[in-house]
Amino acid sequence: MVGAGLVLALCALQLCPAALGGSHRLSKFGGFAWENCGDKRDPVVLQSLSVAPDPISIPGNLRVSAAVSSSKAMASPLKAVLVVEKALGDLWIQLPCIDQLGSCTYNDVCTILDNLIPPGTTCPEPLLTYGIPCHCPFKAGSYSLPASDFILPDMELPSWMTNGNYRVRATVSNGGEELACVKLAFSLQSQ
């Protein structure tokens, strides 16, 4: 099973390309926020990202809109590094990588995408409708995802990945070159 952190990283990559960029501050505690954290020369930039409801409910419906621009094609191997922290009182604790959940490194995101959506398979909605690719390589350009609804299934998350406030830093690189860096802050609520 692909972890929630990887889903966020893939979103930051280009599965939700419209979701990358901006200068929103992550100081908001207990609510959704995002910002680009990479070098100003990073080729992939999140332009906008909105997520509702806040907090995110699992299971439940998630409405996402996003925009991303990429000045460079992204090809295999794409490496994604996630640092996931959870608030415990006033402290932020980095979560370890356990069963591909938490602060993990994914050395070949393109292969993971191919395992989720086999090559030759049509990209799922709403990606197909809005011309958002779901396989490597990703062409340079601008991608936009208007407000779209996704169903978050009842996932068996470990107790340390349920209710609470989280911060995620997702960095994507190829051959040691940073392509994108995005920070997210959000709250999860399990039902």
Rank of each mutant, 00 (worst) to 15 (best):
C123M: 05
T129Y: 08
T122A: 15
G131E: 08
C110K: 10
P124F: 10
P119A: 04
G141W: 11
P137N: 06
L128C: 00
P119W: 03
D114C: 02
I132P: 04
P118A: 08
P133K: 06
Y130P: 03
A140T: 06
E125D: 13
H135W: 03
H135F: 06
T121M: 12
C134T: 12
I132V: 15
L128Y: 13
D108F: 04
D114G: 03
F138I: 14
D108N: 15
P119M: 02
I112G: 01
C110Q: 10
G120R: 04
H135R: 12
P126S: 07
L113Q: 14
L116I: 14
D108K: 07
K139H: 09
A140D: 12
I117D: 01
K139S: 15
L113A: 11
L128M: 03
L113M: 15
Y130D: 07
P119K: 13
H135Q: 13
S144H: 10
I132G: 02
D114A: 14
I117P: 00
I117H: 11
L145G: 05
D108W: 03
L116R: 06
P137V: 10
G120V: 06
Y143S: 06
F138Q: 02
D114S: 13
V109H: 02
C136A: 05
K139A: 15
I117E: 00
P137G: 06
I132A: 04
P118N: 04
N115C: 00
I112D: 04
P137A: 10
P118H: 09
C123K: 10
H135K: 11
G120P: 01
T121P: 00
T122W: 00
C134N: 05
K139C: 00
P126G: 04
G131R: 13
G120S: 09
T129R: 15
D108T: 09
D114N: 15
N115V: 10
D108R: 09
C134W: 06
E125V: 07
D108Q: 10
E125N: 09
L145N: 03
S142G: 14
I112K: 12
I132Q: 03
C136L: 08
S144T: 14
C136E: 01
S144G: 02
Y130I: 09
I117Y: 14
C110P: 10
D114M: 01
I132R: 01
Y143A: 08
K139D: 14
S142F: 08
N115A: 12
